[in-house]
């Protein structure tokens, strides 16, 4: 039974992208295989909860976000929103009620804004398409309200501007305003501050945190930055090569990590790594392997400093290591 307190449940979610095999391989009947971008994820997001999805580049974070926002179709598993199975719902009109409740903020705000639309049209687009307003007056009110919530004041000054006339921070605020305008219950934010100047990051993060406080919006905050995740999130889920290796409260995962990958991530950041963590394990070696060739056994074993024989053969299941804290490692128990 889905827990109705959760706004979103992902159950054993898979997204495999087929690889177009080379002609030579196809003639010899070799299977082409697939990029296992997301390879069995279970994740719940509660109402008004901020969950951070952390992982290196290529670990599948964006793909998870695209599935939740219905831009990509999962190849396996289920996605429940408010207890309703949304996995196979498709088409812009069938998705309209869902679009009203789930919105997205993008990494590159410049790319996310049509260069030929004004700020007003950009923010008004979801309100118009989802038919959430009755007349022009109401539309202008809602657009102004959304721009103000996103920190663009006075909103009227921005209505007629084009994206290229805005600074990077202001563009991201416009993207946020567009997502806010429909008053969604869940926002997926895919690395929303990674392309912004450090001085602006804090302000944008504040806008996101305020949303939860004011409107009880849930937030899936996607980032590669563990300290940032700790700063903003209630819970942290650590993704490695398409699988969640550790989930727990932000403090637990950050200060008491149980998976070697999380430990390595933490050690990579001097602010919280400190001397204690550093002595335990060396920092990460090498790069994330390609999701097209997932290692056998535990997918982290080729880079794991404490791997032993079992890790090379069997994939560890997630085990409970504390209250609401799970880790998928043979050494975690």
């Amino acid at each position: 039974m889905p827990d109705t307190a959760d706004v979103l449940c992902l159950e054993s979610l898979h997204v495999h992208f087929p690889i177009q095999g080379r002609l030579f391989d196809r003639l010899r009947g070799r299977p082409a295989g697939a990029v296992r971008a997301v390879d069995g994820i279970d994740l719940n997001i509660g109402r008004g909860e901020i969950v951070a999805l952390v992982g290196e580049s290529g670990s599948g974070k964006t793909t998870v976000g695209r599935v939740i926002t219905k831009l990509a179709q999962p190849t396996g598993g289920r996605m429940l929103f408010d207890g309703r199975d949304m996995t196979s719902v498709q088409g812009s009109s069938a998705l309209r009620p869902y679009r009203h409740r789930v919105q997205m903020i993008f990494q590159d705000a410049y790319q996310a804004l049509n260069p030929r639309h004004t700020v007003f049209d950009i923010v008004a687009e979801p309100l118009r398409s989802l038919r959430l307003v009755e007349d022009g007056k109401q539309l202008a009110e809602r657009v102004g309200e959304a721009l103000a919530s996103a920190g663009l004041n006075p909103p009227g000054d921005f209505f007629a501007r084009f994206p290229h006339e805005l600074s990077g921070g202001q563009r991201q605020r416009v993207v946020i305003a567009g997502a806010l305008a429909v008053r969604p219950e869940l926002i997926v934010a895919d690395e929303p501050v990674s392309m912004l100047d450090v001085s602006i990051r804090a302000q944008i993060l504040q806008v996101l945190v305020d949303l939860r406080a004011k409107h009880n919006m849930a937030l899936l905050f996607i980032t590669h930055d563990l300290p940032l995740a700790w700063l903003i999130a209630d819970r942290i889920a650590v993704l490695y090569l398409g699988k969640l290796v550790e989930i727990g409260s932000a403090d637990e995962v950050t200060f008491n990590p149980r998976h070697p990958y999380t430990v390595a991530l933490r050690n990579a950041t001097p602010q919280i790594g400190g001397n204690v963590g550093r002595a335990e394990l060396p920092a990460l070696q090498g790069e994330v392997p390609s999701a097209a060739r997932v290692p056998k056994g535990c997918r982290f074993h080729p880079r794991c400093p404490v791997a032993f024989d079992r890790c090379r053969e069997e994939e560890p299941p997630p085990v409970e290591v504390g209250s609401g804290h799970t880790a998928a490692c043979w050494l975690a128990t």
């Binding site: 695209r66 926002t69 219905k70 831009l71 812009s92 009109s93 998705l95 309209r96 679009r99 009203h100 919105q103 997205m104 993008f106 590159d108 790319q111 996310a112 804004l113 049509n114 687009e125 979801p126 398409s129 989802l130 993207v175 567009g178």
Partner: peptide
């Protein structure tokens, strides 16, 4: 381009 994704999330139809 990402703005097409954004338009889709905004609920715009293919025609629009």
């Amino acid at each position: 381009r990402t703005f097409i994704d954004r338009a889709r999330i905004a609920g715009s139809s293919n025609l629009s």
